[in-house]
Structures are given as structure tokens and as C-alpha cells.
């Protein structure tokens, strides 16, 4: 019985690849990047065919929260490439599974982040509360919406950006910064668990005066719900949100797809791809494309989280662990 069962399993798994005529890779990505890759993948497939005697390839997509995806890959999801929005969720593929080398982030330009975004503000039409910068978020008459920093990477960026702005404003005075960030977190009307939940609270339920989330999301919301209903406010100073990508070496070695997977990630840095990425509201690296979309993307001074706050492990321990600074601020 057991042999029959295993034999049937073997037959089912062996039959599947035999049916495949074309080579394919799987891009495992975050849950809000569907439109982006739906636009990029056909272009990549076309370019590949042109350069490889018309070989047809398929890029399959999977979209979920990046921590969930990292877990699935560690459990065996055959992802040839990952395109995430959290460096720590790529790093875990090395730390816990040795699926990628330790130096994965230096294999491609710009810390393996072909595009990026940063924490920005979305306000209701006409900006009735006159929000201009982080200072306004600490005002007692302003109600905020952003997700819970304990569960959302997006919200950790928001919290850290507020903290870094405070340090800059008060010339590194920790106590004053702490008070400033305390005012901001206590102005939050609802802490949703994730970015999309916060968007729903702000847009569908009409909660709060300011939604604080990635610039790409604020621009996407305006496009989705009407640019006459919301205004985007770009703060003077914010935190760079990297969108790291990597080939999953253990998977591509086994499936013999390294050449496609590497070409796919390099393609993301080309002007052709960067143009599509900019159209989807992410900030890009190519100077030519940056110049072309200058009107859409106002100048901003960005900082790197690890340069100001140290490693993500240290950040979590100091700020977001149980009883750490974030919890202390909320209890006031």
C-alpha cells in the first residue's frame, strides 16, 4: 500500500515536468506588486526570445506578504527569484536555509534594489489640516493612520522615519525625540496589521486625516480612487524603503534556470524596465528615467535605516520587542 502510494506520487510528479515544453521561472513577490510584474514579464519574455533564437520562456508569479513568501521558500516553494520589500525577508533565506550566499546583496547594483520607495503622506482633498512635514503629525488636532509597527514592515519604516526626523530636528537629543515620536504614535486612530489594511481604514472607512505609507502606495491610491479625492504630501526627510531582489541559488541550480533568473534581475535595471517601474510609482535608479519622471517625483532627502539605527536585529530589539521603546511610548 505504501509503495503503491509513493509510486503514484512519483508518477504524478514526474509526469508534470514532462508535459512542459517551454522553460519557466517563478518570481515570488509581495502582494502589492502584481500590476508591476504583469507589465514587466511579457517585455522580458519578448527580449529573451529575440536574443535566444526565439526560445519561449514563461515567468510565473506568486504574490503574498514577503515574510510569508520567505517561509514558503524555506519550506520548498521553488522560487527562482524573489522580489521583496524587506531586506530581512531575503536575508532569512541565507540565515535559515543557506539557499542564497551571505553576500547576496552585493551581487547587483544599489544593494540589489533596482527600485525603491520611501515613507510619504496621503491627505484628504485640499489638505484641510495643512499637513506639510513630520512636525504636523505630532499636533494634537491631527489623527493618523498607519499599520502596527510590530506586524508591518511598512509601519516600522514610518516609525523609524519619524524618529530620525526627530533626531535631526533636536540635534540628536534622545529625550526630545522620544517625546516627539510618542506624540505621533499616540495620534494613530487605528493600528491595522498590514499596509493594505491601513489603506482600507483610511480610504473605505474614512478614518484619520493622514495615511502614512510608501510613496508608491499613496500614488497608487490616487490613481485607484481618484486624484480629486486625495493629495500626496512629500515630507522634507524620509527613510529609503529598499525593494531587494535575489536569485535563489539552491532553486536555480536544481532547475537549471540560472541564466534566465539572472537575466531577469538584470533586466529590471534596464531603461526599458525602469520606465515601466516608474510608471508604477516606484523610484528608479536609471538617470535617464529619473529625469523623464522628474515631475512625478519631487526631490527628497532620504536616509538608510541601517546607517542611522544599526542592523535590523538591533532595531527590533531596541524599538519593537515586547516592552521596548514603541510599547513604552504607547503606554503613556
Amino acid at each position: 500500500m505504501k509503495h503503491l502510494f509513493l509510486a503514484a506520487l512519483a508518477a504524478a510528479t514526474l509526469a508534470a515536468p514532462a508535459l512542459r515544453a517551454e522553460r519557466e521561472i517563478l518570481n515570488t513577490s509581495i502582494d502589492v506588486s502584481r500590476e508591476l510584474f504583469a507589465a514587466l514579464n511579457p517585455v522580458f519574455a519578448k527580449n529573451w526570445a529575440a536574443a535566444h533564437d526565439g526560445e519561449k520562456i514563461v515567468v510565473n508569479q506568486s504574490h503574498q506578504g514577503s515574510s510569508k513568501q520567505a517561509r514558503a521558500i524555506l519550506d520548498g516553494l521553488p522560487a527562482d527569484v524573489v522580489t521583496f520589500n524587506q531586506v530581512s525577508d531575503v536575508q532569512v533565506l541565507h540565515d535559515e536555509g543557506k539557499l542564497i550566499p551571505a553576500d547576496w546583496q552585493s551581487r547587483l547594483p544599489d544593494q540589489s534594489s533596482p527600485y525603491y520607495s520611501f515613507t510619504s503622506f496621503l491627505v484628504r482633498e485640499g489638505n484641510p489640516k495643512g499637513i506639510k512635514d513630520w512636525d504636523d503629525l505630532a499636533r494634537p488636532d491631527v489623527k493618523l493612520v498607519f499599520p502596527n509597527p510590530k506586524t508591518s514592515g511598512n509601519a516600522r519604516y514610518t516609525y523609524l522615519a519619524a524618529w530620525a526626523y526627530g533626531l535631526k530636528k533636536f540635534n540628536g537629543d534622545e529625550a526630545k525625540t522620544r517625546e516627539f515620536v510618542g506624540k505621533i504614535v499616540n495620534n494613530v486612530v487605528v493600528f491595522d496589521t498590514g499596509g493594505r489594511g491601513a489603506t482600507t481604514s483610511f480610504v473605505e472607512r474614512g478614518l484619520g486625516d493622514v495615511l502614512i505609507t510608501f510613496e508608491s502606495e499613496t500614488l497608487g491610491i490616487r490613481k485607484q480612487y481618484g486624484d480629486d479625492k486625495y493629495d500626496v504630501v512629500t515630507p522634507s526627510y524620509s527613510i529609503a524603503g529598499l525593494f531587494p531582489v535575489s536569485v535563489v541559488d539552491a532553486v536555480v541550480e536544481k532547475r537549471g534556470t540560472r541564466n534566465i533568473a539572472e537575466a531577469y534581475l538584470k533586466f529590471l535595471y534596464t531603461d526599458e524596465a525602469q520606465d515601466i517601474i516608474a510608471k508604477n510609482f516606484y523610484r528608479v535608479r536609471s538617470p535617464a528615467v529619473v529625469a523623464k519622471y522628474a515631475a512625478q517625483f519631487p526631490d527628497i532627502e532620504l536616509f538608510d535605516a541601517n546607517e542611522v539605527f544599526g542592523t535590523w536585529d538591533e532595531i527590533k530589539k531596541t524599538h519593537f520587542a515586547n516592552g521596548a521603546i514603541f510599547d513604552q511610548l504607547l503606554k503613556r
Binding site: L9, A10, T13, A16, A72, L74, D75, G76, P78, K254
Partner: peptide, 20 residues
């Protein structure tokens, strides 16, 4: 799963069960 009881054996024999 890859980290499960039969994981290493399945990986060794190129049998995809989970995520397939």
C-alpha cells in the same frame, strides 16, 4: 515540506509534493 520529515528524501529524489 522541504524542512519536513520526508523533505530531504523527496528533495534528493526530485519529487515535488508541496507547492505543486
Amino acid at each position: 515540506g522541504r524542512r519536513g520529515w520526508f523533505g530531504p528524501w523527496l528533495v534528493e529524489h526530485n519529487l515535488e509534493i508541496m507547492f505543486a
